[in-house]
Each structure stands twice: as C-alpha cells, then as structure tokens.
Design a binder for these strands. Structure first.
Lengths: 234, 234
DNA sequence: CGGATCGTTGACAGGTATCAATGCTGGTGG
DNA sequence: CCACCAGCATTGATACCTGTCAACGATCCG
C-alpha cells in the first residue's frame, strides 16, 4: 500500500468519525481505535428516484447505510406478482443479508432521492472480529429488521383495507411529530398491503375527502395522527 | 467454583458435543476449545401441547433451541385480535431477541410436545466474544428468521384464502419428502393467514373432499404436494 | 398538442366476514 | 358403561368488502 492510498484510508476513516448521522448508522459506537482498523474505502454515493441499488440475486459484496432518502425492498412471487416487504428509512442498513449470503434477497429501489455509504462486506467481517462494538450494532440491526418485519406482518397484513392504509401512513410518519409523511404511489401501497391499486386509490381518496390527510406535494403529505389511530383500533 | 460444579459443567459441555441434533442447532460448528469456554449450565426440558415457553414482555435472560416439537410465536394487536407471526421448527432458535432486548417480543406457545435446550444469554455473549464460530451461527440465525419473515409476508399474506392455506401446508411440510405435515387448529390457521376460523375450516374441508390432503390423526396429515403447488401458482 | 403515466371513479361479480345452527369427539362424572 | 358437556369443526344464509374490468380525468413532458 503506497502513501497515497494510506492517505485516502485515513481520510475515509476520519469522514466516518465526523459523519453527521453517525449516531444513526452502523458505526455509531465505534471508538478511535476501531476506526484505525478500517483500511478499505467506504464510498459515498447517491441515487435518484426510481433507480435500483441492487437486484435480487446480485452478488452481495457490500452492505449499505442509508444516509438520507427512502428505499423499498421488493420481492417477486412465483406467479409474477410483486410484494414490497420492507421500507428502509434514513439511518437504516440495507443488504444485511450480504453478511451471510452470496446474493441479495430482494430488489432495492429508490423511492426518495437517496444517499448511501457503501461498506465492503470483507471490511465488516474483519472489524467484527476485532471490535466488539460493531458486533453489538449488527445484533441491534438484525433485531430491528425482525421487529419491523413483525409489525409489517401483524399490522400491515391483516384487517380491512382502510385500517391497513391508516397504519401504513402512521408507520411511514414514524418519528415525525409534525405528521409529515411520504405518500407512495397507489401501486406501491397495493404491493405493500396486499391490495389492488384501485382499492389503495379509493382509500387514499376517501382519507383526503374526510380530511385525515392533506397533500403538500405529489408524494408528501401531512396526516392527522389521531383520526388514523382511531381508525386502526376500530 | 468447586470441583462438583466443574464436573457438572464438563458434563454439560460434553452433552452438547454429543448432541444428536447438534448440526441443526446453535452450537453446530463450535470445536472442542469453544466448548471448554462454556461454564454455565445449559438445561434441557420439555413442555406439553398448549403450554407457554414465555410471554410477551417477560424478562429475557435465556434463548432456547428447539430439539423437537413445534412452537408458535403469537403477537397481540391493539384491537385485541391475535396474529401468529412465526412457526418454530426442530433445530430452530427461539427468543433471539433476548440478545438485544430486556423482554421477549411474543408469546411462545407449544403446538406439538417440545423439548428445549435453555441457554443463558450471558453465556452466549461471553462465547460470542471469544469464539468467531458462534458469531457466524448467530448471523445465520438472524438471517434465517428474516428470510422466513419474508416468506410469510410475501406468500402467506397475499392472494386468495385457498392459495394461502395451500402455501402454509407446503411450508409446514417443508423437508418432509413423504408429505407428512402438522395440521393446526382452524383458529390457528386463521391467526397465521389473517382469515377467520370459518374460512380456514371451509378451505381445509374443501381440500379434504378434493383429496389434496388426508388426515392420519387429529393434527397430522399427508398432503399432495403437486396439487397444492398447482393451486399456489394458479 | 398529443402521448404516457398515474390517479380516480363506477358497475358488477366474486370472495370473505359475520351470525347462527348443527355435527363431532374426547373427557368427566354419575 | 353410558350420558353429558365443552371445545372444535363444519356448514348455510346473508351482507359487506374487495377484485376486476372499464372509462375518464389530471399531470408531466417531449
């Protein structure tokens, strides 16, 4: 490794240490010594709406942290239909399956313009053996993914269409106290909640008329959390 | 630690090493040195049908491997209804969330008489720091749980009732070439597939009449994989 | 302007939930 | 040993929800 490369490495390491959203992402509680162990480049890059981060079956040599934006993970069924199995938000990790598989399990498609850090799997594995901090973070991430999957299963897959949509909007607005929230296309809502595009459209239109939601732009809206919560529990 | 205790430890360690289903469970690829690190007892015990392994919110100081039998993980929704979010089969790990949480996330209830190994979380964490083998196994387990969750989401939560039931039976018979398979109560089928008891009953009754399934006892049956597969893809 | 894409709405058919009644089975106590 | 009960499974009738097919409106962009 020549000095030029070493310089690069150092800069990258420093970058992670200074990362504005570091407390959200994978290296949250790594200390200075841990960062010294990082000697492969961590790349940053962006993707526009509709672009694909990876496809199902692609060789999985990297995992990603989402610095900003929104991603959907899509799974194709035997009969050709699609189902969105997860939504990745800012600070989440994408492609964790790379740690145990040779291939990604889903298609990852950008919903809102997204910025990523790309981390080589080999890097993760090395760091994991030398530092206990990352291991904890990884466990927490797995845990989180499974918890999300449970929510998806229990709340977003049973009950009437109205309730499921209401719950989805609450889920998407999670954390935003102002009730601001991404509004997916009707087709995506359908793929997330196992309903048709038409049904999704009808429900959203109904919510608009009733004042449960207000559009602020094409794919951004403000929700009335109370009304939607009420709907979920009725 | 007195010699009596040490003896116990040793026996337990040996027990794991000789376990008939070790290749299925958590300590699959631990070597002799790793086992020497185990110094807290791993208990074995059994539960009868209907008994509870743990409740949602219980303090989670242990994780379990299922040596034989069948377990359901149940989640209660806000409106009081229940949803079964996972089925645990022989060789699977139960309560992985204990590694990152103080409390279990579900109710774990026995469907078929079950035998467990109970492993202290503290033990797992120690071993995890000293041996890379367990860490790999754990990663593989998380991975597996998530993969299963995806299957539930994509296959068992969308499509017509008949297709979902067909897929469930295929899922339950997974691995058994002879097509032998556990048949849950209609209520449990409903809770797994987000449908009512009555609908589940109608579908099962229909499958019986059509010869897609044959009962061998109250909760055990033989399925015609081809017919069910056909149904799934139609 | 015209085309493409997405969203909305209507009519209708078919699937599923709901409510209710009846069989079935295993266990209990007389 | 049998009657009876409790829990589960089955089945029917009906209403409601959602899928399907089709038409139309809105918006963006070349």
């Amino acid at each position: 490794m020549d000095s030029k490369q070493i310089d690069n490495v150092w800069k990258h390491g420093k970058k992670c240490e200074q990362c504005a959203i570091r407390n959200l992402v994978l290296f949250a509680d790594l200390d200075k010594n841990d960062f010294d162990l990082i000697h492969r480049p961590i790349n940053e890059f962006e993707l526009a709406v509709g672009e694909t981060l990876y496809n199902q079956g692609d060789c999985s040599d990297f995992i990603f942290t989402l610095r900003s934006g929104l991603i959907k993970l899509v799974s194709y069924l035997a009969d050709g239909s699609v189902r969105i199995v997860r939504i990745i938000k800012k600070g989440d990790v994408v492609g964790l399956e790379a740690l145990d598989n040779k291939h990604y399990l889903h298609h990852a498609v950008v919903l809102e313009e997204a910025a990523f850090c790309r981390i080589p799997v080999s890097q993760i594995k090395e760091l994991n053996e030398r530092s206990p901090h990352l291991s904890k973070q990884l466990t927490a991430r797995w845990q989180r993914v499974i918890f999300d999957a449970d929510v998806w299963l229990s709340q977003l897959s049973s009950g009437f269409a109205k309730q499921r949509v209401a719950y989805l909007l609450l889920y998407l607005s999670d954390g935003n106290d102002d009730g601001e929230c991404y509004l997916p296309t009707r087709e995506d809502i359908g793929a997330m909640l196992a309903m048709t595009t038409e049904t999704a459209s009808r429900v959203i239109a109904d919510f608009k008329r009733k004042g449960f939601i207000k559009l602020v732009s094409a794919h951004q809206l403000i929700i009335n959390k109370e009304s939607l919560n009420e709907l979920c529990e009725s």
